[in-house]
């Protein structure tokens, strides 16, 4: 049907007038050895930890500009109050959430229950439940996730779908709430990619199947350049920014 990759590459080499083999000058980034990458990633972590207060401020500011409703919270209690009042104002009856570590310190189930809603973990118990979970997701009023990273430069939340964390929780319900801990914060896109690369190398070439980089609500301007929020993803996004763990 197609052509073998070797043949495809041969056409390219002919077009370039190039012999096979790696670039004569090694590409700096790819030439980086594991210890150097590890040291760089460690430096990224250390800097982020050192600069947490600044990163929190920057995150709050940038995320708000990018369309998040940012709520800075001093601790879990304040965060839960916010969840309750949000669930109440939405009149939420069904709230989906992921299964992530953050919910051990910020137990949102009770907070949603406090507003009269039901918070349930969107996890599959085998293939048969897939349709059912999806249908429930489609009918839920809000999805809650943690953040694997949060990037101050862009005001973004990064989630890495995996066991316990469906790809759909943060995109199918009309409202998404992300809980960001100080330890999730990174300064820049470069920081994020340094850490992901390290993960890739550490895990023998696997860093998971998916990465979601989320910045504000779903939006479109495809009709007369008029911005409408909430096309296929959430129309409303909330970020609970914890000032301490």
């Amino acid at each position: 049907m197609g052509i073998p990759s070797a043949q495809f590459r041969e056409t390219i080499r002919a077009a370039l007038g190039r012999q096979s083999g790696p670039p004569a000058e090694p590409y700096d980034v790819l030439a980086e050895e594991f210890p150097a990458l590890e040291a760089r990633a460690e430096a990224v972590r250390e800097r982020a930890a050192r600069e947490t207060p600044e990163l929190l401020d920057r995150m709050a500011e940038t995320a708000a500009l990018r369309g998040w409703n940012v709520q800075r919270c001093d601790g879990a209690e304040e965060a839960l109050d916010y969840v309750t009042s949000l669930a109440r104002s939405l009149g939420a009856t069904s709230v989906a959430r992921s299964e992530q570590e953050v919910f051990e310190t910020v137990p949102v189930d009770a907070a949603v229950a406090g507003a009269g809603g039901l918070c349930w973990p969107a996890v599959y118990d085998g293939p048969s439940s897939r349709t059912e979970v999806r249908q429930r997701l489609a009918e839920s009023d809000m999805g809650i996730t943690g953040a694997d990273y949060a990037i101050a430069e862009t005001g973004s939340v990064v989630v890495l779908p995996r066991r316990g964390l469906s790809r759909l929780v943060s995109v199918v319900p009309p409202v998404h709430l992300a809980i960001v801990r100080p330890s999730d914060l990174l300064g820049t896109l470069d920081d994020l990619f340094a850490l992901r690369r390290l993960e890739h190398v550490r895990n023998g070439g696997d860093m998971g199947s998916y990465l979601n980089f989320i910045t504000g609500p779903s939006r479109t301007a495809d009709i007369e350049q008029t911005i409408v929020v909430g096309v296929h993803g959430p129309r409303e996004v909330h970020m609970v920014l914890l000032d301490k763990e």
Partner: peptide, 24 residues
């Protein structure tokens, strides 16, 4: 493209779902 500082979403797909993944 649009003057946006960043788009709402960037998705990075690396292979199909892993056996453990919830979906994909």
């Amino acid at each position: 493209a649009t003057g946006q500082r960043i788009t709402s979403y960037m998705s990075m797909v690396t292979g199909p779902r892993r056996p453990d993944d919830e979906d994909g």
